[in-house]
Structure formats: structure tokens, C-alpha cells
């Protein structure tokens, strides 16, 4: 899409885009290029010498059971967070769309966690589930669950899943609510006249019509779980115990900054960039074109 009428100026447009382009080149393209470049080299810890090794950094990664485990952890983590945050949000949005009384109060009370930083969400749940004094851990122990996320990797993963999903519910809620409100009233009323129960109406009319929103949210939630939750994990479990909660972004950090293995960290960065690019393309290609009926 283009404007018919434009201004004529030789220099001005370049000046206008210059700040954004400068930041982009210096802090986005240059580092990304460096990541790509150093993923093909083997570097010593002090950066004095380096050696071209071709694809060695990549092949080593895929031979490393730890890295493959991280892939699995990331997938479990991402899918669980997306499923949990989306299903709860959908239920709440359907309910909020139905109420007449106190609708705005409910909405206010449901959307504020959007503003809570993932790191803070993590720290608070870490406190609630602390095996020795957390209140939720206390309830779980009373119910007979042997809760200790410091030693049990699965429980640690569950802890970060719950914290990450908790923070994301508000976001999904707002989008589902907007989606629900755009569904024509007449469809629901027609179905009601045909004596479809609310349950039937939801599954045969509302839910299919929400497909574009659901798809969009699925991609956004996966991106959130894969990348934005770094803070949540870093501030709480730090990838542990052992590496039960070290998702892929966390591993890029721990390999590079803690393990000082630059080549491998760069190779991991490149793999992650490929993943983000793929997800962004999916989001823009398929979601923008909409899953229409």
C-alpha cells in the first residue's frame, strides 16, 4: 500500500530513518553476524586465537545428550505453558463475556498480572512453593505430596511452568475476550432458538469462530515460553536441579557466560534465531491470512 501524495526531499527521509537504522545495524545486525561467524570457529577462553572448524560446533551440539534434553525440556515447557495459560484464559474470557453485573471489576482484577515481570512472577511462586516454608508446598505436603523442587527435577519444571502460565493468563484473556466480542450476536441467538444448549453453542459456533485468535495466541505463547521466560528461570531455579529446567535460551547463556564456550554458544544462538525466524514467518503468513471459515 502506498500514498498517492508524498513529499519531495533528497536528504530528509534518510535523516528520519537514520536513528532507527543506526541502532538496528549496531545492536542487531552486527551481533547477529558475529554469532553466525563465531559459530564456525573454535575459540580459546581468552579470545587470543581461533580456528576454523566448519560445522563442528553444530555437530557437537546434536551429539550432546544434554542439548537434546534441553530441546525436549523446552518443548514440554512451551506446550504446557501455552496449554495451561490459554485454556484457563479461554474459560475466564467466556465467563467474562457472559456476565452483566460487575463486568469491569472482573476485567480489572484479571488483567493486572500482565504488568508483573516474569522474574517477579517466578520469585513469588518460588516463595509459595518453597519446600520448608511455602504455603502451597505446605498444602501439598499435607495432601501427601512429597514436594521438594530443589532435588526433584520434574517438580522444578512444574514450578516454572505454573509461574510462567500464571503471568500469561491476563494477556490471553484480553485477546480471547476481544475475539468473543467480535462474534456476531445473531449466530448465537439463532442457535439458541434452535434449542442448542450453551455447551453445544460453545463447541459448534464460538470455538470454531475463535480459531484465528487461538492460532495467533498459540504462536505468541510459544514465543513467550521459549524466550521471555529466561528471567523467570534465571531468577529462580537457575536451570537446575542438574539441568531439569534449562530451556534452550538458558543454555545459550550458561554455555557462553558460565561455561565460556563461545563457539558452542554462538551455534546455539544461530539455531535459536532460525527458530524465531520460522515462528515469525508462521505468525505472519498463516495467522495474518487467517484461518477462515
Amino acid at each position: 500500500m502506498q500514498k498517492r501524495v508524498v513529499f519531495r526531499s533528497r536528504l530528509l527521509p534518510y535523516l528520519l530513518v537514520a536513528p532507527q537504522i543506526a541502532v538496528t545495524v549496531v545492536f542487531f545486525f552486527w551481533p547477529s553476524y558475529q554469532a553466525l561467524e563465531s559459530s564456525f570457529f573454535l575459540e580459546d577462553a581468552f579470545g587470543f586465537s581461533r580456528q576454523w572448524v566448519g560445522l563442528l560446533n553444530y555437530t557437537e551440539l546434536f551429539d550432546d545428550p544434554g542439548y537434546l534434553r534441553s530441546f525436549r525440556t523446552t518443548l514440554i515447557f512451551g506446550l504446557s505453558v501455552a496449554f495451561l495459560a490459554m485454556s484457563l484464559a479461554l474459560a475466564l474470557a467466556v465467563a467474562a463475556n457472559r456476565v452483566v453485573r460487575a463486568a469491569t471489576s472482573y476485567r480489572t482484577l484479571l488483567i493486572w498480572p500482565y504488568a508483573v515481570a516474569p522474574a517477579l512472577a517466578g520469585v513469588i511462586w518460588y516463595f509459595l512453593m518453597n519446600p520448608s516454608l511455602g504455603i502451597v508446598a505446605y498444602w501439598l505436603q499435607n495432601a501427601g505430596v512429597d514436594w521438594n523442587h530443589y532435588v526433584n527435577g520434574d517438580q522444578a519444571l512444574l514450578l516454572v511452568i505454573v509461574a510462567a502460565a500464571w503471568k500469561q493468563i491476563s494477556y490471553n484473556f484480553l485477546f480471547f475476550l476481544a475475539g468473543l466480542q467480535s462474534i456476531p450476536r445473531s449466530l448465537i441467538e439463532a442457535a439458541a432458538i434452535d434449542r442448542a444448549t450453551p455447551f453445544q453453542r460453545f463447541w459448534t459456533i464460538t470455538f470454531p469462530l475463535l480459531t484465528p485468535t487461538t492460532f495467533f495466541l498459540l504462536v505468541v505463547n510459544l514465543v513467550y515460553a521459549f524466550f521471555d521466560t529466561f528471567a523467570l528461570i534465571h531468577a529462580t531455579t537457575e536451570g537446575g536441579p542438574v539441568d531439569a529446567t534449562s530451556i534452550l535460551v538458558f543454555r545459550v547463556y550458561s554455555t557462553g557466560f558460565v561455561g565460556q564456550d563461545y563457539g558452542s554458544s554462538a551455534a546455539q544462538s544461530v539455531i535459536l534465531m532460525a527458530l524465531v525466524i520460522a515462528m515469525t514467518i508462521v505468525q505472519f503468513r498463516y495467522v495474518e491470512r487467517k484461518v477462515v471459515y
Binding site: 542487531f28 535460551v249 545459550v252 557462553g256 554458544s265 554462538a266 534465531m273 524465531v276 515469525t280
Partner: peptide
Amino acid sequence: MIFITLMLPVEVRILPTFDVV
């Protein structure tokens, strides 16, 4: 060029960006 930055979050290029600054 601006659009592509969507695909390059800090989390995935931590070390080189740190190097640059």
C-alpha cells in the same frame, strides 16, 4: 531491515551483543 529486528530478540544473541557494547 527494521522488520527483521522482530526476529532477533536479545535472548538469542546474548554473547555477541555483550561483546559489541
